[in-house]
């Protein structure tokens, strides 16, 4: 399973989002810090879920970071995200 697919599966399971988009944009960071051959280092997540209602922006991102702790500790160098209540 690709890192992108793992991120998608974990977010799906954790938040049952109404909208979820995970894009591997590692190719846009070739040569930058953290990039490596083969990519799978830089991702962009857009997620809308009712689970985020009433949470501050910081709390929402913390929740996403917690769900992806293994990936962030491992292969993922950068995770840009837009987290909205559904």
């Amino acid at each position: 399973m690709s890192v992108r697919d793992r991120i998608e599966a974990k977010l799906q399971e954790a938040f049952a989002p109404a909208h979820l988009e995970v894009v591997d944009e590692s190719d846009q960071h070739i040569g930058h810090a953290g990039w490596r051959e083969g990519g799978e280092t830089h991702f962009r997540v857009t997620i809308h879920a009712a689970a985020f209602a009433g949470m501050s922006r910081v709390a929402r991102q913390r929740a996403v970071n917690a769900a992806l702790a293994d990936e962030l500790a491992g292969p993922v160098h950068a995770l840009a995200m837009k987290v909205e209540p559904a």
Partner: peptide, 8 residues
């Protein structure tokens, strides 16, 4: 007070 990172 911590406000956030780049996305926020």
């Amino acid at each position: 007070e911590f406000v956030g990172g780049c996305d926020i």
